[in-house]
């Protein structure tokens, strides 16, 4: 993370630590222990939206067996879950509920955007009722492409997430610094959602060829 470890003392690299562990000495930091425990028991939310949900379920079954990575405990309630796998197309009608569920999850919480639809709208991007990516409203940690991604890919995205968790620093962890992250729930209007995106989380990419508005509409 951004803030380096400024505390005095030994900062061990992984090889030295492994050597010491072999010798029966465990030297550790609270950060390391904390992240190790967190990364090994990420509880996902039972949250199926569309096609990708079936592959998410398949990753939990015996052939792929997500419990090898400590994440087999799918919780139906957001209050007990750590990880939200947004598995499928988020429609505009569904988007407020997704944000609301995210708000209800306790810290620390992570989000995997699974499948092309959750990342950007995917094949349905041009639809009038399809949200063009869930990252417009909530922060996403891992993007998992595919339509739908294979169960192996779900496991790999979980591995990436665990790697990310291992680099977390307690001091800058939002769970301790800001408390539970909550984002405003978008509201329905006559044609679209209001606001169309949450500027705190997401900004549209800058267009190098942008024309002024008057020219474009003329």
């Amino acid at each position: 993370m951004t803030t380096p470890n400024t505390s005095p003392g030994i900062d061990l690299d992984d090889t030295t630590r492994a050597e010491l562990e072999r010798a029966g000495v465990i030297v550790s930091k609270v950060d390391y222990l904390y992240n190790w425990a967190r990364g090994g028991s990420v509880w996902p939310l039972t949250f199926g939206l569309a096609c990708c949900a079936i592959e998410m379920i398949a990753s939990a079954t015996s052939r792929f067996d997500i419990s090898r990575f400590g994440s087999e405990v799918f919780r139906p309630t957001p209050r007990q879950a750590d990880l939200m796998i947004v598995s499928g197309t988020v429609t505009k009608k569904m988007a407020p509920q997704v944000v609301r569920i995210y708000n209800q999850m306790p810290e620390p919480k992570w989000v995997i955007a699974m499948g092309a639809c959750a990342i950007s709208g995917g094949p349905f991007k041009q639809g009038y009722n399809v949200l063009k990516g869930i990252d417009r409203y909530i922060p996403v940690d891992v993007y998992l492409p595919g339509c739908p991604p294979r169960p192996e890919a779900v496991l790999q995205s979980l591995n990436y997430l665990q790697e990310k968790i291992r680099t977390q620093d307690i001091k800058s962890d939002p769970a301790f610094t800001v408390g539970r992250r909550q984002y405003p729930v978008p509201e329905f209007t006559g044609t679209d959602l209001e606001p169309p995106y949450n500027p705190e989380v997401w900004q549209p990419p800058a267009n190098p060829n942008a024309q002024p508005l008057e020219e474009a509409t003329a």
Partner: peptide, 22 residues
Amino acid sequence: MWDEFEGHPMRKDYTEPFDYEW
């Protein structure tokens, strides 16, 4: 669609909301 929605999207002359960005 949701209850507040205006217009009928499957009509041929329906204009979609502009929500694309570059």
